[in-house]
């Protein structure tokens, strides 16, 4: 099973850093869990509709109305790094 996934590329996609010992353990865990999940192959799923929602609801809208939230200061106040009214992040380089 473990050859099925590349733990490094998954970690990269999910922006997770894996220490060496974590990597071995997680690779092993994931292999086991995926091996277990494999049993779903026993089910005949032909013609079965996927269930994405259990709420039998459709067409839930809101009207196009503006309601100012006025939470900017409250959010910025607790932000891990603000500068003026902006959030600040390390320089974003792969952008024009």
């Amino acid at each position: 099973m473990s050859e099925k996934f590349n733990i490094d590329s998954l970690a990269d996609l999910a922006r997770i850093r894996l220490k060496k010992e974590e990597k071995a353990k997680l690779t092993n865990d994931l292999s086991k869990i995926l091996g277990y999940v494999e049993a779903l192959g026993q089910l005949n799923l032909e013609g079965i509709e996927p269930t994405t929602h259990v709420a039998k609801l459709e067409n839930v809208f809101r009207a196009d109305e503006v309601k100012p939230a006025l939470v900017r200061e409250e959010v910025l106040k607790h932000s891990p790094h603000r500068e003026g009214n902006f959030f600040k992040v390390p320089k974003v380089i792969d952008q024009a």
Partner: peptide, 11 residues
Amino acid sequence: HEGVKDGSWVD
């Protein structure tokens, strides 16, 4: 990015 020292701003 422009005029931001050591970083970028998000709006």
